[in-house]
Design a protein around this nucleic acid. Structure first.
Lengths: 333, 333
DNA sequence: GGATGGCAGTCAGTACGATCGAGTGCCAGC
DNA sequence: GCTGGCACTCGATCGTACTGACTGCCATCC
């Protein structure tokens, strides 16, 4: 644990670096409020902080920069969640008052809201399909030999899968299959699809089995939906083009993003700093996550992705308030 | 129209600039194959080309850079679509051999394919919903007071909209409403939704009317779906961070992208260079578009977005082959 | 003994000038 | 009409010097 004076100095360095993106020297720290010692003393303490791994020095005659460990101490012990300013609070309020439409649209625009609030990229993961029960199954013919299985889940998500049909499958047979599938699947989950029981009709059983396979395959390859808002803001967060490309490229891979958020949540964190999340390409980023609940049940996750030198208090506050209000909004239906 | 010699020189400048991103001087042009005159002569011709607006000079002792007009002449008169190399052709082939799944997934991965082929951002716009006829309508209850209208279209797209239900709407009434809606809507299009005819039951008519309104509203606010692949590649295409942010920000606005592609298509172009498309933030970009057809009918559009100094022949070839094979693949079902 | 002021040393960033080199425009000559 | 030659322009590069923001260390002070 850190001495109070050292903690104050560390805090000054972190805040200074977040503001200016420049290494912070002993002089700057001394000039800050709340620090009542001379630069020389600060230098001595900074050596200690560096040896303990909280700070690092880009080169000899430069100021200090926080390490991941330094940021970690900062968010854990030095700052609370902060408060949003009035304008942003108003923005959140009017957003949730006016938003409407399907679940997917709402999650997408929520990610944009969160990005606007923080000036970083934002991520919203929809409710997992595992837990939702199937409310309705329907088989619709499209072309001559193509059909579409449509399953409506209790959380409002619609899953679908295309299947090939035998030539002889007519409308009445599709209706029969729909009825049979409904009987077998409604009430269950996509994660644990049952075998469809035999109906006595070989062709019909075949269609049903194909449908179940297609639904199941579609569900496995495509994990929870994720909505990324404001990715373009990462372009200004770093000055190295290569870093920008790496980060944006990673954000494009949905399954990686979902995995990242899930991983952070699983470890009970609300903030993952730098390399803590283990994703090499995002080594210079921090992630702030929060779950949202629908009617008390954990439903999904929202998060903000920014540079490690991000504005933690604001971002924490934004994530907290958006997750709470999103949950409330979705619980209303 | 340009003199053959001038055309050759223009071509050399454009190709040189595309390769090196540096202004091209008379010496470089002279050293190129196919140019058999001295640098001095080339200089004279370059002055003429500059006066006619094909080239411009960043500053006095620098080489020349093509203007939008220069690129335009280049793509119109100097190069054909080019050919993909064997590796890429193979990539296209195996992609379409192995891809499967729902329409949406396929369009998304097609945009990623196109981006991989060209190293630029790629865009795929799905079939417009206007023309597709409704194959099936279903009303599903979700929560106590929430319902979901699900419409399956003939092109495989599933449209949905949430509606508020009166308390007293039970399952059997939903079934009745589903039946009634089906009778009224199936066979029509989302663009021209009919009034649902009266059934004699006030409550049921109310639910049906609400459903139609919700479907119609959802369809209007949300235009054709668009899939953007490889946006991160724009990060390396420009060296000004601000340009990168502007371009990426524009790509995030789906309706702008859809409008851009539609606009370019409507004007009968397959390439829009620089400011030709009129989108201020994309002034330094060119767009290559092509329609794809399903069973002979125009279905959607694919496109590539790159810097004006993009590699036109390859990109044209990639867009052409992908649009053709995508159409063929989708026609098979 | 901990804090401080002073001091020498380090090193990135900047300013300046010289030089280089790529490129131009112009002109006389072939 | 093409070409070679030439003077000129001007960005890029390089070396130098300098500045300024640091640090670490040490003697001193309370």
């Amino acid at each position: 644990m850190l001495d109070e004076r050292r903690a104050t100095i560390l805090r000054a360095v972190v805040e200074g670096y977040i503001e200016t993106a420049q290494p912070v020297g002993s002089g700057h720290v001394a000039r800050r409020e709340g620090v009542a010692v001379s630069p020389a003393t600060i230098r001595n303490e900074m050596v200690a902080l560096e040896q303990e791994g909280y700070l690092s020095q880009p080169h000899t005659s430069a100021g200090r920069v926080p390490t991941d460990k330094g940021y970690r101490f900062f968010v854990d012990s030095l700052v609370g969640p902060g408060e949003l300013d009035a304008a942003r609070r108003q923005q959140v309020k009017s957003f949730f008052a006016s938003t409407h439409g399907a679940l997917e649209d709402m999650l997408l625009s929520t990610s944009q809201l969160l990005s606007n609030l923080t000036d970083y990229a934002a991520v919203v993961v929809g409710p997992p399909h595992e837990q939702a029960t199937i409310r309705s199954v329907q088989l619709v013919g499209l072309g001559a030999r193509t059909g579409l299985v449509v399953a409506v889940l209790s959380n409002g998500v619609v899953e679908k899968a295309t299947i090939d049909l035998a030539d002889e499958t007519g409308d009445e047979r599709l209706a029969a299959a729909t009825a049979h599938l409904s009987k077998c699947l409604v009430g269950g989950t996509l994660a644990a699809l049952p075998e469809v029981s035999a109906s006595g009709d070989v062709l019909l059983d075949d269609v049903c089995a194909t449908s179940v396979r297609a639904l199941s395959a579609g569900h496995e390859t495509e994990p929870d939906h994720v909505y990324v808002g404001g990715a373009s803001r990462m372009a200004v967060a770093f000055d190295a083009v290569e870093t920008v490309r790496r980060v944006l490229g990673t954000l494009e891979q949905q399954y990686v993003v979902v995995g990242l958020l899930r991983d952070v949540m699983d470890r009970g964190l609300s903030v993952a700093i730098g390399t803590e999340h283990g994703l090499e390409p995002l080594a210079e980023c921090s992630v702030i996550v929060a779950p949202y609940t629908i009617e008390g049940e954990p439903a999904g996750t929202i998060g903000v992705l920014g540079p490690t030198r991000m504005h933690y208090p604001q971002a924490l506050a934004a994530v907290a308030i958006v997750s709470r209000r999103l949950g409330r909004r979705l619980s209303e239906g």
